[in-house]
Every structure is written in structure tokens, then in C-alpha cells.
Design a protein around this nucleic acid. Structure first.
Lengths: 209, 209, 209, 209
DNA sequence: TATGAATGAGCATTCATTCAT
DNA sequence: AATGAATGAATGCTCATTCAT
């Protein structure tokens, strides 16, 4: 038990550093964030950060990937709800769209996009990994759902991947525009509007009839 | 004339510095780019850069705004072509969409998005200005065109702003996804596909009948 | 017996650490060598090194002194052979000179000189101790041998210490020059030449007749 | 004139930095010396040191080479005096030997040897350069002088290089031993003794008759 | 106006050393 | 006795910015 506690403590400290790191990176950007600041806010000494995570770069990558996985899990859980859309497909789609928008609009998700975008040139591989674990994954999950609905005759879709891509476009792009890349808060009512409009247009195009 | 030449020379030098600055910022990112590097590539001494542009921050803002205006001009010119869509609306829309995609996929436009996104937190006002001059402007121009087409009975649109927002979403968001935020080149054929799919879905939803 | 084994193990571990330490110090220099590296190569944890040897400085001193004693023992054994020079004094001297040169040219001896010299300012006392145990000792042993030979009428020497000093100078200084302070390997043939030349000159000056 | 003054000022500052650097390196050793300390003692800001000398390593190399050249010039001037030895060769040789010993015993020369030796492993090329410019050069100059004296019948030498090597050995090695690698001051009288003894032995071996 | 030179501030990283186990 | 983990203290180096010319 003592051993378990000890190694749990170690894991907790590492996790704490990663969490704080993401927050600080989100606040200041990769370059302006300094390891000292992260260490201070995590309540550890600077070398402890290095002991656990080698590098500023490594620290960044791990922090970002952890956030990416968390966001991905949230979104996947939402999309999964399309498995049983119930009678009212429009309502179900709108609900999913709205909840996806909520996630996209949350701090972590916004920070994740900003950090990833900001380091496009510096860490191209990281961008790749993050996108694969998030956008890619959710796009595929959505395509799977749409394919099932098409099979069930609920939708008229020939290319599920393309349909998913467009549905997600209709959901996320307007949010990016209205939130001005996340610099402005978008009220829930407006999220609702975006979700409704996306669903309406999507169903107009792909609805059976 | 001598004076004119001199001040022309001055203006040219300023412009040269801004151009080089954008290139360097695009290549290295705001923080990693250093003024010395910009001065070197512009063929001037470091203090000359400061004489013309005060600050690293000011230098950045001017460089980015100049690029934003250039991109905006390009996109507006394309959207303007929707004024006379001809008989085949689908063809006209697809053409416009394709050319917009070309612009979005070009180096300057990608760099502009990356730099803007990267400095979200640091220069929120800049983000605002850039977006206003680019996305905002083009969204409005597009809304204007769609409104006219609706008025002419060619499209069934109640909210032109929303329709424009969605059309642009269908055009740009898939590009972002497939180019992995601009880190991968997207072949012309794929741009074509995106344009066609966007037009098809848009017209399915908003076409008259 | 168990106790003996245990303390033997302890001694062995200490010895292992010292050996590794000398190697690492020789390779990297005092300052650039880090305790972690020594611990790693010795297969122990860092605190174990501290348990056994207190300090980086202490560790260094012990490691260097051990090496110094080993080198001193080697050289003394060689000089001792002058006790019975046989008929051909020139041959005996040349042989001793050659073997001294071999020792001087060996890795441990070179590293010892380099490390000692490098820490002249930092650990002046160590320099003193090392020199006393090596150069001093061998100079005296050599003086003893020469005095005996003088007494036996084989050499014409009034000041044996001075003669020894000069003989050792004729042996070691040329090696330092030709090996460029030990950075270049000197082939055996060249060592032979140095030994012969030293002997010749020494005997020309001090030989009886 | 203004230009001359300005660039003279620049050169002076660079030279001042190099001088201070050598002093500090001599006092603390390469690794323990810190650039800040050098900058402080030179009365400039740290970046100024970097502006002029790129690197800590570069700074070290230039400082050491400058010192090496100065020492070499001193020693060469002394050896040159053997061009006209006058009637009393023993006196002339002793005088030269004594003055060489004075140089070897001076702070700069001692520091130069210590620093060079200390960085054997780290900067082997530097060692090479320093030795070439000092020991090598002086050995050749001495060989030249001895060859002339042999030609004039004043000395019986077949291999001037070897003779020079041995003469220098007889001069310098005893000093190293007695000064304990430069950690102890050797009184002038003792230098005199060393010089005399070296000359005596050398002439016993190589004198004509 | 343009520039060579200088600087103050900051930051990633390393390392000897020490606890708690 | 041995170690995993943590830390205080340094240090090399960079960069935006400013003078003096």
C-alpha cells in the first residue's frame, strides 16, 4: 500500500505538472511561457519539472497531448449518442451539434487549438498527432454514425466521410467565425442557433426527401 | 523630384522591411523570429528597422495587416465574380469556391492564419482587426451576393448572412481538415472535390426547388 | 566470515567507485565530469557515491591519489632495478629510461598529470601530495641509485640529487614535447631513441672518464 | 583620425576583454571562470563579450593564443642572443638559460601551461596550436643556434634538434619539479643554480673536448 | 537617416547535494 | 547501506532595445 501510495504520489506530481503546464502554455503561449513559472504554479522546483519531463519541448508535447486526449474523449462520447437518435433525427442532431459546440467553446478546447496552430511550424509532428487524435477521430466516428443512418434509410448519403466532414464544417466553422477564433465568448443561445442552422441545412441536403 | 525619389526610396525601404518581416515571422513564428534576422534579410541595420517601425510588436502588426489586406483583396475579387453568375449557378459557385480554396491554400494565407492564431492571447486586438478585414469582409460580401441571388429567385434564402456563413464553412473547413491546418499540400484535384461537394450540398439545401 | 565478506563487499564497492571516478575524471576533466555519470558507470546510485566519499572534491582527491600511488609503485619498481646494473651501465640505464618512458606514456600516467595540472589552482594541496608521492619519490630513489654508483666509482657525481634531477629531465621532458603533452602517441622506437639519447648525454657528462 | 580613434577604441576594448579573460581563466580555470566575471572585470556588459568573441570557448582560445604569442616572443628574443655568444660560451649559455627560466617562472607563462594542460581533453587542437607556437618554435630556434655553434667548432653536435631538446629539458624540467608545477615560487638564486647545472652538464656532454 | 556598438533582462538547462524511504 | 526524488544555485547565451556617431 505504501508503495502504491508512493508511486501514486509520483504520478500525481507528474500529472499536476502537466496540468499546470497546459494552463500556463495556454495563457502565455509556448515561447513566452517559462519553465520557472510552471514549476512555481505546480508547487515544485524547476529541476523537478526537468526530472519528470526532460525538456521544455517534451513538457509541451505531453501537456498538449494530454489535453488533446481529454478533448477527444469528450467529443467522442457526444457523437456516440447518435447511435440511438430516437424518432426525431433533427432534434438528436441539433442536440449533438450543440454539445459539440459547447466542447469547442470551452477553454481547454480553445487553448488546445490555439497552441496547436501556434506551433505549426515549430512542431509539425505534434500538430499531426493532435489532429489525428481529435479531428480525425471524431470525423471518423461521425462518418460511422451517418453511414448507419444512411443504411437505415434515415439519410440519403453516398459518401459518409464527405457528409461527416460537411456536417462538422457546418457546426464548427461558424463558431470559429463568431467567437473570433475563440477570443469572444459566444452565448449559449447563439450556440443553439448555430446548431439548429447546421442541422437544418444538413438535413435539407441529406435528409430522406 | 529628388524629394519624391527620396521619399519613394524611404517608402520602398519600409515596404521591403514589412515584406521581409512577414516572411520571417511566417517561417519562425513571432517569438522565435528576431529583429536582427529581419534586418539582415532586408539588407538594413537593426536600428533602421526600429526607426521605421518602432517595436517588434508594431513591426509584426503592420506586417500582418499588410498581408491581411492583400489576402482580403484577393478573396473579395473572387467573390465579386458572383455578381454575374451566368446560367449555370452551380458552375459559378463551384468556380468561386475553387478559387477561394486556392487562395486559402496559398502560403501567404496559411501563414497569415497561423500567425494570427498563434498570437491570439498576446495580441487579441490584432486578431480582431485581421478577422474584420478578412473573414468578416468576405462573409459580408458573400451575403450580399447570396441576397441578390435570393432576390432574383435563384436561391431560397431567408437569412443571407447565415447562408453565407454556411457556404464559407462548407468551403474552408474541409480544407483546414485535409491540409492539416496547412501543414500538408492539398492537390488541385482535391480542392476541386471540396468545391464541388460544398456547392452541391449548399444548393441542395438552398437551391430553388 | 559473513562480516568479513560484507566489509570486503563494501571495500570493493568503494574501490570500484574510485576506479570509475578516475576514468571519468580523466575523460571529462574535473569540472565537466558529473557525479551522476560516475555513479551510473559504477552501477550505483548517486547517494551511494556520496555515502562513500562525501564530496565531489573528496572523490576526486581519493581517485587521484590512488592513481598516483599506482603510478609511483610502477616507477619505483623500475628504478629499483638500477641496484644491480650489471656490467653494461649504459644498457642498464637505457633500459630503465625506456621503461620509465613506457609508464609515462601510459594512459593512467598521462591522465594523472593532466588532472593534476588542471587543478593546480583549485586544489594546490592535492598537487603537492601527488608530486610528493610520485616525482619526489622517484627523484629520491634515483638519487639513491646514482649515489651508490658514484660511490662504486662507476659515475663521477658530486650532487646525486642534481644528477638524478637531470637524468629524469633528459628522460621525461623530451617525451612531453614529442607526445605534445600526451595528445599524440609516441611509437616505441621513438621512446627507445629518447632513452638512448638521455643515457648517452647523461653518461657523457657523468660517466667516469 | 576619428575613424582611427573609433576603431582603435574597438580594438582596445577587444584587447582589454582578452587580457582580462586570460587573467580570470588563469585564476579560476576554464570551467569555473564565468563570462559574467570576465565582463565585470573588463568593465563591459556580458553581451559585449559575446559580440566580440562569440563563445566562451572562442574567448578562451583567443585569450590563450594571445598569451602564447607573447610568451613565444619573449623566449625567442632570449634564444636569439645566442647568435653572438662572445668568448665565454658557458657564461652565454647560462645567461640564456637563466633568462628562459625567468620567463618560464613568470605568472603568464605558468598560467599558460596550466590552462593548456587543463584543457588537453577538451580542446586538443588548441593544445596543438599553443605548443607549435611556443615549445616547437623555441626548440627550433635553439637547434638553429646550436647548429651554428657546431659548425663553428664550438660544440660537438651531430643532431642539433636532439641537442636542443636536451638542453631545454635540462633547463625547464628541473624548474617544473622544484616549483611544483608552478605552485611554489623559486628564488632567483635557485634559478641561477638550475641554469648553471644545465649548462655544465650540457657542455660536459657536447662541449668540444 | 542609417548604423556599429553596447546593454539589461531573461531563460533553458545542469549539477552537487540532501531527504525520506 | 542504498536509493528515488527533490532542490538551490549557477551559468551560458539570446534578444529587444538604445546610444553615439
Amino acid at each position: 500500500m505504501a508503495g502504491a501510495t508512493a508511486s501514486r504520489g509520483r504520478i500525481d506530481k507528474r500529472q499536476a505538472i502537466l496540468d499546470v503546464a497546459f494552463t500556463v502554455f495556454a495563457r502565455r503561449g509556448y515561447d513566452k511561457a517559462c519553465v520557472q513559472e510552471i514549476a512555481d504554479e505546480a508547487g515544485v522546483a524547476k529541476p523537478t519539472v526537468y526530472n519528470h519531463l526532460t525538456d521544455k519541448q517534451t513538457l509541451f508535447e505531453h501537456a498538449v497531448l494530454a489535453a488533446a486526449d481529454a478533448v477527444a474523449a469528450q467529443t467522442l462520447a457526444i457523437v456516440a449518442d447518435l447511435r440511438e437518435p430516437g424518432d426525431d433525427l433533427a432534434a438528436a442532431l441539433t442536440d449533438v451539434a450543440y454539445r459539440l459546440l459547447e466542447v469547442c467553446a470551452c477553454d481547454r478546447s480553445r487553448a488546445l487549438r490555439a497552441l496547436t496552430y501556434a506551433q505549426l511550424t515549430t512542431f509539425p509532428d505534434l500538430v499531426d498527432t493532435v489532429l489525428t487524435r481529435t479531428s480525425r477521430t471524431i470525423a471518423e466516428a461521425m462518418a460511422d454514425r451517418l453511414a448507419r443512418l444512411a443504411l437505415a434509410g434515415t439519410l440519403r448519403i453516398t459518401d459518409p466521410a464527405e457528409a461527416a466532414e460537411q456536417l462538422l464544417a457546418l457546426i464548427t466553422a461558424p463558431l470559429e467565425a463568431r467567437s473570433r477564433l475563440g477570443t469572444r465568448a459566444v452565448p449559449a443561445a447563439e450556440l443553439r442557433d448555430i446548431a439548429r442552422a447546421a442541422t437544418r441545412t444538413f438535413l435539407s441536403a441529406y435528409g430522406s426527401r
